[in-house]
Amino acid sequence: MQTKGFWLAGVLVVLLLAAVPDTSRGISVPDMITLNTQSKLYEPFKFDHAKHIQLTKECSNCHHHTTGTLVQEPNCVRCHRNSSETKVVSCRGCHQADPFTAVAIKERDPKIYHNDMPSLKAAMHRNCITCHEKMKGPTGCQDCHKRSKEGDALYNSGAYTPKNKPAKGEHGGH
């Protein structure tokens, strides 16, 4: 219950802040975006958007086909050959905050396309971490967002690190 609250709060903040306007239409592109401002498990952090633009130079590396180079994935091209840039290019424009509610699961129709879209949280983590692995960027949890006190409690880390206990029962259960 508690963790759900944490994540929902985090996701809501991400929702508010993840909007990244489109450069090509002259809308101001934020240089810095603060993410995670209300997350309980991790502290807010500043995402250096400008630096990432410099590094990758290709919007579609992160924004898929919504801006920058349009659809190239052969499987997607079958329908989206002539699709243009989308009005909303932010992550939250497509990715749901909570994909596992009873309603969301009921609406998950295995017969339609785009029914396997990751949640907002997963979309960001997978996008960032996959690329960071490739580009030798940081991939540790706290490399991007520092853990909060409540996060330390959940992970039994930091001030909540378990005291050294006797080995007895260490492999309990079997």
Partner: peptide
Amino acid sequence: FGKPPACVEICPQEALTFGL
């Protein structure tokens, strides 16, 4: 109550997908 287990909810990568 129709909610996913705690492990699914916390997974940052959605390595765990909850559904029918």
